[in-house]
Design a protein around this nucleic acid. Sequence first.
DNA 1: GCCGTTTTCGGCCCGACTGTTTTCAGTCG
Length: 581
Amino acid sequence: MATKNNAEIAAAFEELGDLYELDGAVSYRVIAYRTAAKAVRDASVSIMALTREGKVTTVPGIGKTLEEKLKALDETGDIPSAVKLRAKFPVGLISIMHLPGFGAKRAKLLYDELGVDSLEALREKAEAGEIRKIRGLGARVEENLLRVLAEQEEGGGPAPRILLSRAIPVAEQIAGALRDHPAAHRVEIAGSVRRMGDTAKDIDIIATADDVGALIATLAELPLVESVAASGDAGARVRTHSGVKVDLRVVEPDQFGNVLQHFTGSKAHNVQLREAAVRRGLHVSEYGILDDETGETLRCATEEEVYERLGYAWIPPELREGRGELEAARNGSLPQLIELSDLRGDLHCHTTLSDGRQTLDQMAEEALRRGWEYLAVTDHSASHGFGDHVTPEALEARIEEIAALNDRLEGKIRILAGTESNILPDGSLDYPDELLQRLDWVIASIHTSFGMEETAMTERMIAAVEHPWLDAIGHPTGRKIETRPPYAIDMTAVIAAAAKNGTMIEINSAPDRRDMNESHARAASEAGVMVLVDSDAHSARNFDLLQYGIATARRAWLTPEKVANTRSWADFAPLRKRAKA
DNA sequence: GCCGTTTTCGGCCCGACTGTTTTCAGTCG
């Protein structure tokens, strides 16, 4: 039987948590399963491999009981308690409990009272006016239910999350407009946008102002705002023409720090922060810090004060995910995170030779303008297809062209003749070794045969990692955020092979890739792999995308030393395999 | 079900909103 991957294990824990909730288990048990599911999904290593090694209880949120369930899942393909509970509750109840405004209690109530066991049966009962007759429910619940069911049919499920690259311009445009208003004092973006996560559900903005009404009016009248969903004396919720929801909260200046901290989150960070505070007799909320001893609530104008009162150094938002940052902030071991300005070059971009929109000279000129020391030009390779492949002969001509360009540039910047070679299904590259050896730089990626089974895909990638002229792996999992899952691959094994062979792995900065992700990047760096932050630019403007790769690097706790292309050319050049050979 | 700078047992973040009921349960972030 195939080994369950982390996503499958997380789904099994989610399901079991739902089933226990339907069964009326104490809430803490249900929460424990959901916490564990998240921990498994975010883990950078194979949870099943850890289970077999007897080390899985080192993962926060997984204890003895869940270890036993993991063993059962590994050996039999299922969890006995889930089998038992599935016989008790029809699968349809889980769909019902996930409807907005519903939960386990209501799903169970509907099942017990009306025998409802599917969304279809639920709709029939609602249309027949049966829901409103149940004690504890009413006409409003029935109306809302019918509306939700209709919306689901129309929209096909919950609203998708928006990519960070779509959220940031909207957030900055709105925050900028509000800052320009004379009544505004402080205006800050909060939420997952401030944490620079892969995606956001909505945009949170926190402000202080003399005149709340004027600020809300300014927001409502912005050209990009389509409609105002709610508006009060403490803020407003609006929707942009592009469908993005924006929440503005206007708060008292002496609570700004508390509110900004609260709404920056994440949930896991805040829960851990508050639990730790309770152990010291302090209660944290968005309104202040209540001290049990004095009965007084401390209101903080700045976030720094909030963390200081609780005994922590201020924590960069990108780290606030409940992944050890509180402990590090307490004992002074927070990392000095990499910044965009630390980069001295880019090792992955395209020109008109393949599918880029600008010429070699234009890309070089832009890199020079940005003050970089080096730029590797890595057009697609011989088997790329789409009519923009680069034959070996064309690549040889490109080598000459770049030599001439470097002469003209007189050492102001160094352009590297490179390729983004395809990793073929057997793990080989699609140029002859003699040609790869003549290049200054070789990055290689998988662009075909995404459907391979995990073992074969991992072997394919490791064969490439071991190639003597391959310097780095590009976008190693192939994911497209919100649109395409990663192909099946054991990244723990790939990372180990990369560390052993001195092969670098990139964080691709394309905002729908950000690949490798923050979890793999942190693991790779800890394993001793040199990480790259690459733009994969297909135009000169695309170099701006590096901000998203840097964001992923920061969320992976990376310092400048851990990222190879923060180095000067003199220090970077020897890290390439061809320099060591 | 997890976990420990009071604890290996007895706790477990905090508040808003909605809709239903007269003081609260359920859901959500």
